[in-house]
Design a protein around this nucleic acid. Structure first.
Length: 304
RNA sequence: GGUCUCAUAGCUCAGUUGGUAGAGCAACGGACUGAAAAUCCGUGUGUCGUUGGUUCAAUUCCGACUGAGACCA
């Protein structure tokens, strides 16, 4: 049986994925699934550059604006919901268009990543957090030597996660050996790319527009309480930087500059991911060949 | 107008008792399987303002010029 066709629009922040996705949704009778780890959260509108109702232009969107910002979200949840959304869209006879910049989410949903049920062991987690980097690395080397090789001994977050996995039964290496590392759909990865200086200009301007649109008020209304600084959602660029402002360590101008810098660096990491993790067809955002190539891909019985 | 100080990486600056130079930030490259807008790793990208002079050798010493700043008028 032929795999379901899925279009995935990827690329760095601020390059125009949203606008293109809506244009293509109209052209292809499609509906859009957002693949963005921050736009899922409700109320975080300005800082995440979330699609507005106006911009949606009648196109149905999934996985945007649906999670309370004080509840953590993660890849496993996303993977399930994204696959469900693709199914829902297909059943309606519409074309599924994925659009977003969170590379891991895209890959987990579209490839045969398999997340298992786990029972959290808070005691063990607490124990792991008491270990220093060298101790973590040493322990990981016993539990999962191959992962210990791959994960740098300074990367606490990754070492702890690998140890948590091993604690559940099969270790990370064994789990991943059960996967084929192949896409489960027939995917066209459409990547948007522009000259780096131009992208930086756009990012800087977009951050300025966020401030004009009331970013400070938005952040103040959601994250003024220090307790909220632990939320996963507060890790978003455009939010976390305000911590220094709340603590009176920096003024708003410094915060604005920091947000621009972090956005640029994020864009760079996104390029790195999409260039190296998946087979992307790259285009400039206004390239007229985009629609042509998509139509050709859709009408081809199978792409190989 | 006069005196003095400064001029080194994209930015802020260090340094070479004369043998063509290094930090932070930025930037760039990479990793990535339950926080991923997270987390982590790697890389110095430079006519040492311009131009003469001294010297085997000048970014370093001397002169002139240009620019910036401070002070005196």
């Amino acid at each position: 049986m032929a795999k379901q066709k899925v279009l995935a629009i990827v690329g760095p922040t601020g390059i125009g994925k949203t606008a293109l996705s809506i244009r293509l949704a109209h052209a292809l009778n499609g509906e859009i699934v957002s693949c963005d780890s921050m736009q899922v959260y409700k109320k975080m509108d300005i800082g995440t550059a979330k699609v507005t109702e106006q911009e949606k232009d009648g196109i149905v969107h999934y996985l945007v604006d649906e999670q309370a910002y004080d509840i953590p979200y993660n890849v496993k949840v996303f993977q399930k919901k994204c696959r469900q959304a693709i199914e829902t869209i297909t059943h309606k006879g519409k074309f599924p268009i994925l659009c977003g910049g969170t590379g891991l989410y895209l890959k987990a949903a579209l490839y045969d990543y398999d997340f298992q049920e786990e029972q959290p062991d808070t005691q063990y987690d607490a124990y792991l957090h008491t270990l220093n980097n060298d101790q973590l690395h040493e322990l990981l080397n016993k539990q999962d030597p191959q992962s210990a090789q791959k994960i740098h001994s300074h990367n606490r977050k990754r070492m702890i996660r690998a140890l948590q996995i091993a604690h559940q039964g099969l270790n990370k290496t064994q789990r991943e050996a059960q996967q084929n590392h192949e896409p489960i759909y027939d995917i066209f990865f459409l990547g948007l790319s522009v000259d780096r200086d131009l992208l930086h200009d756009r990012i800087n301007q977009r951050v300025d527009r966020m401030f004009d649109a009331g970013l400070v008020e938005e952040v103040q209304s959601l994250f003024a309480d220090p307790k909220t600084w632990e939320y996963t959602s507060f890790q978003g660029i455009g939010y976390k930087e305000f911590k220094a402002y709340f603590l009176k360590e920096k003024n708003l101008e410094e915060i604005r500059t920091q947000i621009k810098t972090n956005s640029r660096r994020y864009a760079k990491r996104q390029y790195t991911w999409f260039r190296n993790q998946m087979d992307v067809h790259w285009y400039e955002p206004d390239d007229p060949k985009i629609e042509e190539d998509i139509q050709a891909w859709i009408s081809s019985c199978r792409e190989e």
